[in-house]
Design a protein around this nucleic acid. Structure first.
Lengths: 173, 173
DNA sequence: TATTGTTATACTCTATAACTATA
DNA sequence: TATAGTTATAGAGTATAACAATA
């Protein structure tokens, strides 16, 4: 016994409390109820992450830096002289996928690959002068346009609490 | 004046506090320092999201449900009788991309498309009996294996605070 | 004319195998 | 033999244009 492949006429579901409804037959869209979905951490986490990345890209439009590119510049600045494998794996990027990313940054003269003399198989990564300058500007944009909006929205204390919990999940879950 | 394309010999960077170092020349990997990266909300958010999805998939392995599929089942259960456009857009899925997702769920007899009699262009979505049963089992798995681990890690109060902040970002950022 | 579901397509991310040059 | 960087490739996820059926 399968479901009949034809639906009932309209206005068959007045249940669920007809709250947002206008006068009578006005057939405006009427948003769906998220229900348990809004309690699913994974769902909310993903939606929040998309919003944050979207805002990041807008804030960085003038420098044309993606979140991934920014993270590479930050990490290479903090750890100059490390090779591709080390930097990529720290960021959770697979070595094959790191090649094109680096090609891009190097072609824009933001960072450089230097063949190591210790182990001629590996490429040491460093920021160029331009890379350092761009990163400095990027940090300012992130601080003044991006993170500041988050502080506005959540408050300084909450933002730090949020960061702590997310770090805990990222590291221990 | 460009950078010399050859690097210095090893042990040139004893700075940054040689903390995790063993006795002397032992050349163990020595992890990179994240530096400001660990303060970037976007970075931590993304890493946390990946961990949560990964764990979700493991918990749901027996039911073979992805986060996206689970969200569709939840939303259709809560809002039976809505069409593809409505469900997809609520979840932030583009209509063309929703087709294959639904094909999959329908081929597994978890949900059904029913041609609407009001508007014969649209397909009304409902869960099948099997779909309802699978969703019930899925909810139990999520609650006992997935969300429970998050409660362990963060504590009930913190988990709710986290959810609240992420919702705020998702909705208002 | 506009909308629903659909196809085709493309572009990004991610993932794996295998090659080269070094060790 | 093992490792670093690379290539090729395949698969997800996501994006837009356009078509047929229907309104």
């Amino acid at each position: 016994m399968t479901v009949s492949k034809t639906a009932e006429k309209s206005s068959e579901k007045p249940g669920e409390a007809a709250k947002g409804r206008k006068d009578a037959a006005e057939a405006q869209p009427e948003a769906l109820q998220l229900g348990e979905l809004s309690e699913q951490l994974g769902y909310v986490l993903k939606r929040a992450q998309l919003k944050v990345f979207e805002n990041f890209l807008r804030c960085m439009a003038s420098l044309q830096l993606t979140p991934a590119q920014f993270s590479v510049l930050l990490l290479v600045e903090k750890n100059p002289g490390r090779n591709q494998t080390e930097v990529a794996s720290t960021l959770g990027i697979l070595r094959p996928n790191f090649v094109a990313l680096l090609d891009n940054l190097e072609s824009r003269d933001l960072c450089a690959r230097i063949r190591s003399t210790n182990d001629r198989r590996s490429h040491i990564l460093v920021l160029t002068d331009k890379g350092k300058a761009v990163l400095t500007r990027a940090k300012k944009l992130v601080a003044t346009k991006h993170e500041s909006r988050l502080n506005e929205l959540l408050g300084q204390a909450n933002r730090e609490a949020l960061l702590g919990m997310l770090s805990k999940i990222a590291n221990e879950f």
